[in-house]
């Protein structure tokens, strides 16, 4: 079950929020057989070794190799920590 893209938006959603919620249906898609999502984007860093270098101190009490990090990574285009299923207009295939 995903609550987004089902047509039933939360009442609290303002027009701006609505545009965020609806955006995936516009941006998501397939480009040359590759889905336009972070996992396939060259800006997305999800390699555990690279992540442990990008986030100093992560090793002390956690790890990039555990399930709580899972397959999340850092988008170097937006400098955001994201799920690999996110998408945006700056997608560039790896």
């Amino acid at each position: 079950m995903t609550w987004r893209g089902t047509g039933a938006l939360p009442k609290a959603a303002t027009p701006t929020r609505r545009s965020l919620l609806e955006r995936p249906s516009v941006q998501r898609g397939v480009e040359s057989g590759v889905e336009r999502i972070c996992r396939e984007c060259r800006h997305f860093v999800d390699d555990p070794v690279a992540l442990e270098r990008l986030l100093p101190g992560l090793l002390a009490l956690s790890s990039a190799q555990g399930d709580t990090r899972g397959d999340q990574g850092v988008c170097q285009a937006h400098d955001r920590f994201l799920l690999p299923t996110m998408t945006c207009r700056r997608f560039e295939r790896r």
Binding site: M1, T2, R4, L20, L21, P24, Q27, D67, T68
Partner: peptide, 30 residues
Amino acid sequence: VVYWEKKGEAGDGPAGRVGVSVIWARFPKF
């Protein structure tokens, strides 16, 4: 998504689906 996303990002900020599957994905399997 409902309350915190910045308005200015509406144009090119990252977005996407977050389903209930995240509950299992983040569950500490050990």
